[in-house]
Computed example of a mutant assay.
Amino acid sequence: MKSFKTSVIALLIVCTIIFLLSACNKEEDKPKGKPGEVTSQLSPVLSIQQRNDGIDVLAVLENHSNHTVTLSFNRSKMFDVAILDSSKKEVFRHSKGKNYEKKREDVHIKAGASHIWKTKWKISAENNKAGIYTVKANFLPNKIAPGSLRTKSLTVEETLTLQGGSEEKMNNTFRKIHFSGKDGTYKVSGEARVFEGSFAYSVSDGHNVFIEKSERIEKGGPDWAPFSFEVKIPEDDLPINGTLMLELFYYSPKNGERADTLAVPLQSFK
């Protein structure tokens, strides 16, 4: 009898251990991250390509979870893309001028897969305005399953550097721009015609502004007058991967905003 009781107790202990191990394994199989976190499931990505007829933008949602994610939309406007220049002026918006229907539609993104939306900023190579632009994409579902909707997790932005067209680097205020130098030291010269003979310039990499200064020329508009200056950026501040962009402009006496910006790529780093 004693031997039987001992066997029963031993069996119960074994069953308890098996149950605990099984529970632990189930906990490990659960997706990591807080319940309902969109960021643990979807990763928004932008792919930007400069072509002869404009800028192709691919707005992508990648599913990094181990299950299918369903995005529900209550209108045909599923995403939007905006492009802003260095003065934060919007130069393109995908949804501008479009009419959207109110209709329910679901997008299913399988585990490890992605869904792509496309748009295009149509500008010819000749009319490209060199400069550093910010591209922002916003995905607009009203429901996500499984999980809860966190709109801030469904936005992404990237920097677009336009090298400009084939025409001479000039506009109504600046012309005959020449520059030389490398690795943080550059000489810039040209001609300008500006109100009261004063203009400004900045140097940035799309994320950081390294220099912003004003310059004076001998004559004010409408006459053209020569200018030259030197740009120096510490070696430690140079980008590891990116383009240093010089932007020439003047501040409008009407509203104080940047006007007639001319952008020139000084050097690309890779």
Rank of each mutant, 00 (worst) to 15 (best):
I13Y: 11
C15T: 14
I18L: 14
N25W: 13
K30Q: 15
K34G: 05
T39A: 15
S40K: 10
S40G: 09
S43H: 13
S43I: 15
S47M: 14
Q49R: 13
Q49I: 11
R51W: 07
R51E: 15
N52R: 05
G54C: 09
S65L: 07
T68F: 03
T68S: 13
R75H: 10
S76C: 03
K77C: 09
I83M: 13
I83G: 08
L84C: 00
S86P: 00
K88P: 00
K88S: 14
E90F: 00
K98I: 05
Y100F: 15
R104D: 14
H108V: 08
I109M: 09
G112W: 06
W117E: 10
K120N: 15
N128I: 01
N128H: 07
K129A: 14
G131F: 07
T134L: 11
T134N: 12
T134D: 12
K143N: 14
I144Y: 09
A145F: 11
A145D: 13
P146S: 09
G147F: 10
S148N: 13
L149K: 08
T151I: 08
K152H: 06
T159V: 13
T159I: 12
M170I: 02
T173R: 04
R175I: 00
K176E: 10
S180L: 00
K182M: 01
G184D: 02
T185M: 02
T185R: 03
T185W: 00
S189L: 01
A192R: 03
A192D: 02
R193H: 02
R193P: 00
F195R: 03
F199T: 01
F199L: 01
Y201P: 03
D205G: 01
N208Y: 07
I211D: 02
K213P: 04
K213C: 05
I217C: 02
I217D: 01
E218D: 08
P222L: 04
D223L: 12
W224M: 06
P226C: 05
S228A: 14
F229N: 05
K232S: 13
P234G: 04
E235K: 12
L238H: 06
I240S: 12
I240C: 00
L248N: 04
K254N: 08
G256S: 00
A259H: 06
S268Q: 12
